[in-house]
Design a protein around this nucleic acid. Sequence first.
DNA 1: ACCTGAACACCGTTCAAGT
DNA 2: ACCTGAACACCGTTCAAGT
Lengths: 224, 224
Amino acid sequence: MMDNFENVNSRRTRPAKPPLGLDIIIRTAYKLLSENGMSGMSMRKVAKSLDTGPASLYVYVENYQKLSAYVLDYGLRDVKLVEDDTVYWKDAIINVLKSYFKVLAETPGLAELALTTSPNGTNSMDINECLLKYLQAGGISTRSAAWGIDILLLYVSSLSFERVLRNKKDDDLDDLVALYNTVDVSKYPMISKLKSELFSGDGGERFSWGIEVILQGLLSMQNN
Amino acid sequence: MMDNFENVNSRRTRPAKPPLGLDIIIRTAYKLLSENGMSGMSMRKVAKSLDTGPASLYVYVENYQKLSAYVLDYGLRDVKLVEDDTVYWKDAIINVLKSYFKVLAETPGLAELALTTSPNGTNSMDINECLLKYLQAGGISTRSAAWGIDILLLYVSSLSFERVLRNKKDDDLDDLVALYNTVDVSKYPMISKLKSELFSGDGGERFSWGIEVILQGLLSMQNN
DNA sequence: ACCTGAACACCGTTCAAGT
DNA sequence: ACCTGAACACCGTTCAAGT
């Protein structure tokens, strides 16, 4: 029954070629992304990985950008949502965002994708729904909640993107540190003074700090 | 004297070829970017535009990413800083960020560059120095100021990137709106309720709202 | 309808040879 | 040291021909 595609007395010489379809294309693209980062995922590589030509993909995916949006959403499937209604709203939000951060930071390329692509699928909708629920539970107004999830997710995405850069060889950041270290004290008094703070924060500390800033800011908008 | 490269009785048939150098490379790349967006700028196109082969650029620029960092900083040269010490600190910050937003939104590709590249140059340092100064003037702590400029610039960059997407044909956003409009009310009660808010905001309104949120949040961290 | 190799019009980067 | 054409190893997307 599983050997539909082989003749009766088959002795496989290579794995059965799976039939093409949107799902398998997304999963294959995600696998390439998570193994080799952003540059590991391309239409051609996905096609090759599925043992076909690049043109075949266009039956199921309009273009590379659309595929990226699907892959991003697929990558977000592991984000753990909080379902417990008795959890304090702030803790719930922090837990969801921590999981979001972890997923982005663990999968090479996913953070970069999150910064430049709008995810297309139900996983991102589940995350939005969950965050909206707890923001409203915290007494944050409709509009603040709607716009607030964007800031929260943006902030966390960029933190994890930075983290990913830091973990690579990262010539760019070295350049930036060098630039800031050779700075003219009289021309840039503030930067000189705060030099260490500008690149400080072990990630965890800065993560919590930023979420707190945004949530406090949202709360303060209640009366506007 | 200017005709060094021509024979004595020259009658130019095409403009004198400018000597190569980092500056002219950056300016040429920026020109291509601002005329044709992100995809209009490439090593090969810059080289062709300078009437040479792509290999020539590598004498002055290590790679494409470094060039991007230079171009981004160069693009920020038009951001108007506030020098007046009598301006209220919040107004100063809002004015600088408004100018930053305008510059990113007006130059195709620059907003996208800002989201994925750390600028390399003095223009971005001037902006940082200026924002740090006014944040401190507002009584915001050293650490909050240092980390706060990142959030502020990130927020404004992403807003202008969204704006740029919206102004293009933008299939992606249409898909997203479609997805949110066909949403199951019982599975996504919050999203259904806030649907209109999620895509609302004429830009200006949302801009001011976000800056206010972040500044209020930063202020509330003073006692931590 | 689905599948595909080949072609088209590009990329960034390096090599080898020039000056 | 600076410059460069050609080559290398790739891209996304479309065409034309197959089933």
